[in-house]
Amino acid sequence: MNYQDSKKLPAVMENIREAMRFATSFAATMKLPPDRIMSLEMSVEEALVNIVKYAYPAAAGYFEVSCRLSPENKIIVEISDEGIPFDVLAKADPDVTLGVEERKVGGLGIYLMKKLMDEVSYRRENGRNILTLTIMRK
C-alpha cells in the first residue's frame, strides 16, 4: 500500500463497514497500535453514518475516505462528501455527567470522535464537506 490511498463508495449504510475496513487496514499497515486503530475505526464510522443520514436528503451520493501518513508521523484520514453543507463539529457536546432521566438518547458519536482523535477539523471546499481526522502514530 502507498503512503496515500483513497476509496469512494455510494453513501449507503451497507458500505460503511467496507469504508471503515479500508481506513483500519491503512492504519494497521502503518503500524498504528490496535487500541488506536479502534479509536480511528469508531471515528470513521461516526463520520460515515452522518453522511449516510444527512448529506444527501434528496438524491443518492458518495462518500470518500482518503488516508495518508504525514511527515510529522500522523495518520490523516479525510472523509468527504458532495452533499449539503454540514459542519458536524458545530454541534454542542452532550453533557456526559447527566443522570439517566436527563440524558438524551443519541448525539454521542461526534463527541466520541473529538475525544478519541488527536485532532478533528471540518472545511467546506469546492462543494464538498471534508472532515479531517488526525491520529498520532505513536
Binding site: M38, E41, M42, E45, E46, V49, V100, E101, R103, V105, G106, L108, G109, L112
Partner: peptide, 20 residues
C-alpha cells in the same frame, strides 16, 4: 464484544430508560 460505536450505545441507553 470488541467494538461498540455510538449506534450501539444509544440502544443500551434507550433500554435502560425504558426499563427504569
Amino acid at each position: 464484544n470488541e467494538y461498540i460505536s455510538s449506534a450501539g450505545l444509544r440502544v443500551f441507553l434507550a433500554v435502560l430508560k425504558s426499563m427504569k
